[in-house]
Design a protein around this nucleic acid. Structure first.
Length: 291
DNA sequence: TCCCAGGTAGATC
DNA sequence: GATCTACATGGG
């Protein structure tokens, strides 16, 4: 891969294992907008970024090499060798091949911890379009301006300080329903010093236990936060879709979540998070059509 | 009208 | 311990 700064953009050439549509549509991120085919805007770390792709050329619009190195390089997981990970997973288990061949261009985004915590609490028992809608409503009402692209303003997810001013009633007016008190308890935990820095130095089990002390954070939400917001790439969130696809591919019968998680830990190990995301997106693309 | 959605807490057995 | 259910809101 080559990087150059040109006309106020950062251009990545000869990019491998990268598909901007798959990266944003695969269900890991709720804070983006599709402008056109292979043309997306994402909001993270206080900035809005337009990303376009044509074959193996990826353009990060209106940014520079400093910002790339400080934010987007890690956010887009540029330094991880996905070719090697996919090869390892398929060698380990041939049954992953079809899912990985279909969703080949996913990258696990490194998103902000506090946003992942709040977003995945919102996500429970909700469909992705509605989750996106609530995340952008919260951001527009309580976040800061993160940039203007094609005449539209984008807003970052509120920082901890701003989150703490949101009442349960306000969360309810934002259509979060029964999750409103959960969101309040999560923002209190953030206020009391639960940060990415603190959690990152813990073991996976310790960090997960810490997250699950928050009311409204169970096993699945905790694993999503660990995977997408804290860098624990062994985390394997099991939701209805992952359960369905794992049952179809591996178990051929109704199987408890615990058994699925144990299987993933045993077979996918440190790469469980990657396997999970390939399977999740494949399940949503493929099982939808079969039904 | 009924069922489901990137689930979890609390009750009940 | 392992299951059952209520929980807001929206879409098919």
């Amino acid at each position: 891969m080559y990087i150059e700064e040109k006309h106020g953009n950062i251009i990545l050439s000869e990019v491998e294992d990268f598909n901007v549509e798959q990266i944003f549509e695969c269900g890991q991120c709720f804070h983006f907008q599709k402008l056109d085919d292979m043309d997306y805007v994402t909001v993270a770390y206080g900035k809005a970024l337009r990303i376009t792709q044509s074959l193996d050329k990826v353009t990060l619009h209106n940014t520079d090499i400093n910002e790339y190195n400080e934010i987007w390089r890690k956010y887009l997981d540029i330094d991880t060798d996905y070719g090697a990970i996919k090869k390892w997973l398929v060698q380990r288990d041939e049954r992953l091949k079809e899912a990985i061949d279909t969703t080949y261009g996913i990258r696990i985004l490194r998103q902000e911890f506090h946003e992942m915590l709040m977003s995945f609490i919102i996500s429970q028992n909700k469909q992705i379009p509605h989750i996106k809608q609530i995340v952008s409503a919260i951001s527009e009402k309580f976040g800061k301006e993160a940039g203007e692209i094609n005449g539209r303003k984008y807003y970052s997810f509120p920082e901890v300080e701003a989150l703490n001013k949101i009442t349960e009633e306000e969360y309810r007016t934002l259509k979060t329903g029964f999750r409103a008190p959960y969101l309040v308890s999560a923002s209190q935990a953030l206020e009391l010093g639960m940060t990415a820095k603190v959690l990152e130095i813990m073991s996976y089990e310790e960090a997960k236990a810490e997250l699950m002390k928050i009311k409204g954070v169970g096993d699945k939400v905790a694993n999503c936060v660990l995977l997408f917001g804290l860098g624990y790439r062994n985390a394997f969130p099991v939701d209805v879709w992952v359960k369905r696809i794992m049952e179809q591919v591996y178990f051929h019968e109704d199987t408890p979540k615990e058994k699925i998680m144990a299987f993933a830990e045993e077979n996918f190990g440190d790469y469980g998070g990657y396997a999970q995301q390939y399977l999740f997106y494949y399940a949503r693309s493929f099982l939808n059509k079969v039904r």
